[in-house]
Design a protein around this nucleic acid. Structure first.
Lengths: 204, 204
DNA sequence: TTTGTAGTTGAATGTTTAGTCAAATAAATG
DNA sequence: CATTTATTTGACTAAACATTCAACTACAAA
């Protein structure tokens, strides 16, 4: 079965990091190859364009994040706690990223989506798909919270869309301002939108 | 006083449109010149880089938008109505853009900011400045609403930041999904965040 | 140990891009 | 009308970039 290699993985990691810490437009195939320690010929052996590589990397990145989200949004956890945990996780994650890269980088999918949606159809579709999955995590937590009488949310899908917009907007603000502090009270805004009363929203 | 020209203005219009309908990275000096009907030599006569042109265009674009915002956020208008009008205006504006370009384009500053904030310091600062002005419009409406007893918002600056994140997040979602419908109930989310009771939020 | 296969390499290609400049041109002013 | 000043032009260079390919290499199975 011939020679073996992890060059493909290295290329996917490299492209993800370069796009996230910079932008899609500023990420060239040369840079990707250099970062991955791979020669251009090998790049074209595995992929036939930057956008194809980006699409595969996006998919892989999402797959690896999913496990974490499944844990956070486990139906075993009380619904409002899921949301609170998600906000805490996100805040902590961005703090670590800032530590590591010297920069708040926000949400990879939202940032990339906003940049390329008018130009790269395949990527745009993949991103929309991922964002929709994210929305579904929120939606089920909201539905459960409604069923438990914790909040009034007769249209969980709509509420989830609103909350996702807020969440992604905050992350993008944090990226633009390079300031994690923006994210400190993420959950406050979400609970306000959900009409959670202070007492119900209290930490256990 | 020598030859006169509107080439500078044409260049600023061209760059704004190209970045907004595409991205900063995909906008080249050649494209800008072609769109503006200006030769490259002239470009470098007026500006010495794409980022300098973009910064001037950003400033000019903001100046021209300010008048409209002053009207919408006039202290003569009841505070919650200002916010409602702003949402309606924004929704209508994006519908017109979609009509005109075949695409929802969202917020020029937020989209650009998210793309270039890690790479173009000067632009990042300008954008942060503009976003902060936007926040101030919301902040004063919130403060007035609080003073009028319409809502409870002891920290209007913080609330305004939350609402701006939501608003920009929605616009970006609309851009990514190329769907104005996302914006239909913008005000619903804002009023939920502000804790506006249905009756108080009712249209006059 | 041979052979098939998966992956690697570096050099070469053509294209796009940013950036420069000296000469030409058009308007305004004296 | 002559001169000054602002703007335009097109042709040029050099670097960055994407893309191709034939020859080469390492591994695995037969």
């Amino acid at each position: 079965m011939g020679r073996v290699s992890d060059a493909k993985e290295r290329l996917m990691n490299a492209v993800s990091e370069l796009i996230w810490s910079g932008s899609y437009g500023s990420t060239t195939i040369d840079h990707i190859c250099e970062k991955a320690g791979v020669k251009k010929g090998s790049f074209y052996y595995f992929f036939d364009s930057k956008s194809e590589l980006a699409a595969e990397a996006l998919e892989a990145g999402w797959k690896s994040k999913q496990a974490e989200l499944d844990r956070i949004f486990s139906p075993m956890v009380p619904p409002l706690d899921r949301i609170r945990k998600y906000c805490e996780f996100s805040y902590k994650f961005q703090r670590e990223i800032k530590e590591q890269y010297g920069r708040v980088l926000g949400c990879p999918q939202f940032t990339l989506g906003s940049e390329i949606c008018t130009q790269e159809d395949r990527l745009q579709k993949k991103i929309q798909e991922i964002l929709d999955y994210k929305r579904k995590y929120l939606e089920s937590a909201i539905r459960d919270a409604h069923a438990a009488g914790l909040i009034k949310a007769p249209d969980p899908a709509h509420k989830a869309g609103m909350i996702l917009a807020y969440y992604e907007g905050l992350l993008t603000q944090a990226r633009i301002q390079n300031d994690v502090d923006v994210l400190r009270d993420t959950v406050g805004g979400i609970f306000a939108m959900l009409g959670v009363k202070e007492t119900e929203g209290a930490v256990a």
